[in-house]
Each structure stands twice: as structure tokens, then as C-alpha cells.
Simulated assay, not measured.
Amino acid sequence: MTKTNKIIYWIATLWLSLGMTSTGIVQLLRMKGEVEFILDLGYPDYFLTLLGLTKLLAVVAILIPRFPLLKEWAYAGLFFMMSGALYSHIAHHNTIKEIAPVMLLLLLISVSWYFRPMDRKLISVNFSK
């Protein structure tokens, strides 16, 4: 892994972790604006607990060393969660101002996953030989 790739990975991963941690905490604390927002999208308020806890656990899984399979699941979970959020915002006809943070998090998830070091990747086995 080149030095440039390491820098890209850590910048994307740290920004991703910061974004997911901050929104996860806001969701777990059920801050008034967040509750109103989730209800406005049509979801029950208890959904905030699931989203917040999942985000925090995924950040821990991505940042800790080893456990590449767990990291794959964490990246996939965050990607599907943010894809669902993007779809919800678009279906609700939200403005680009409300959609842009979700798109940024999707980009950070993708960049962090793509540039992750070899020791954070699953080893693929080719059974065709």
C-alpha cells in the first residue's frame, strides 16, 4: 500500500467515523430535532435507537485492528443504511441541503472501504484452479 493510499484511507475513515459517531450519539440521545426529522420521514421514533447503536458499533468494528469479516459487515451495514437514508430523503422530496450529508457519508464509506489496508481486507480464495 502506497503512502498516498494510506493517507486517503485514514482521512476518509476518520471523517466517516466522526460523522457516524456524531449522528449516532444524536440519535441515541433522541434530540428533539432528530426525533421530529425521523417522524417527518415516516419512521417511528424508536428507530433512532437502532440507527444510533448500529452506527456506533460499526465505527468500532471499522477502527479496531483485525477482524476483517466484521469490518466487511460493518461497511456493508453502513452502506445499506445510508442508501436507505438517501432513498428516504429523495422519496420525501427533501432539498439537496438535507440530502448532501447522506451522499457525503456514502462517498466516505466507499472510499474508506476501497483504500483499506490489506490487513483489513478479507483474503479471497480462488477455487477455480
Rank of each mutant, 00 (worst) to 15 (best):
L70T: 14
S128G: 00
A85N: 10
G42D: 11
I109N: 09
V60S: 01
L48A: 13
L56I: 13
Y46T: 01
K121F: 06
K129W: 11
L29P: 00
K6P: 00
I99N: 09
P101D: 03
T54A: 10
L69H: 13
I8W: 03
G52T: 02
S22V: 15
L108G: 07
I123C: 01
E98P: 03
K32E: 08
I99A: 05
N5G: 02
K71W: 02
L69R: 15
I96Q: 08
I96K: 04
I25E: 08
W10I: 05
L106R: 03
K97T: 14
G19D: 08
E98N: 13
L78V: 01
L78C: 09
L104M: 08
R30F: 05
G77D: 12
H93Y: 04
I109D: 07
I11L: 15
K97H: 14
I123A: 08
T49F: 14
K6N: 13
S128N: 09
M81L: 11
I64S: 10
L28K: 02
L70E: 05
S124C: 01
A61N: 09
F37M: 14
S110H: 11
P117I: 10
I38R: 04
K6I: 07
A76C: 13
F47T: 03
L108S: 05
I11Y: 13
L104F: 07
L18R: 10
L56E: 05
N126F: 06
H89D: 02
Y43P: 12
T2G: 14
L53Q: 07
G42V: 03
I64D: 02
